[in-house]
Amino acid sequence: MVDLILLEDEPTLREEIAEFLESRGYEATCAASMAEFEQRFDPGRHRVAIIDIGLPDGNGLQLIERLRATGLGLGIVVFSARGTSTDKIAGLDVGADHYLGKGCDLDELASTLSALAKRLDLRPRERWRLEVGARRLHAPSAPPVTLSQQDAAVLHCLMQQAGTVVGHQEINRALGAQARDDEQQRLDAQMSRLRRKIQDDCGQILPVKMLRNRGYCFYSPAEIQD
Rank of each mutant, 00 (worst) to 15 (best):
R47E: 11
A139W: 11
Y99Q: 08
Q160N: 10
A28M: 02
P144E: 02
E183Y: 01
I5H: 07
G54A: 12
F218P: 03
R129A: 09
V132H: 10
T164S: 04
R82E: 04
A110E: 07
A81D: 00
A115Q: 13
V2Q: 10
A49T: 14
D226F: 00
P221D: 05
A49Y: 01
L4A: 02
D121P: 00
N172Q: 12
V145G: 05
R186L: 07
V77A: 08
M34C: 04
A177Y: 03
T29R: 07
P124T: 15
I17R: 00
K197N: 07
M34G: 09
V154C: 05
A110R: 14
L106G: 01
C217G: 04
Q169C: 08
D52L: 02
A162G: 00
L137M: 05
G203F: 09
Y99W: 04
T112L: 08
R40S: 05
R66G: 06
S111K: 15
V132N: 15
I5S: 03
A153P: 01
L6K: 01
L106E: 09
A69M: 07
H168R: 13
G54S: 14
V77Q: 12
D201M: 06
R196H: 14
I205C: 11
D57K: 04
Q160S: 13
Y219C: 05
N213M: 07
Q204I: 08
L92R: 04
K118W: 11
L55Q: 01
L21K: 02
E223N: 08
L63C: 04
Q178T: 14
Q149M: 10
M191F: 07
D52A: 12
G73T: 15
L194Q: 12
K102D: 00
F20G: 00
P56C: 06
C157E: 12
E10G: 04
T86F: 13
Q150V: 15
L175Q: 07
L100R: 00
L206F: 02
E183Q: 09
D97Y: 09
E223H: 13
V78G: 00
F20H: 03
R129K: 09
G44Q: 08
A90P: 15
G167F: 07
E38C: 06
L194W: 08
Y99N: 13
Q199G: 03
M34L: 14
T29S: 10
A69E: 08
Q62H: 13
G75Q: 04
P124V: 15
A117R: 06
R136G: 12
A110P: 07
E108T: 03
L122I: 13
T86K: 09
T84A: 00
H168N: 05
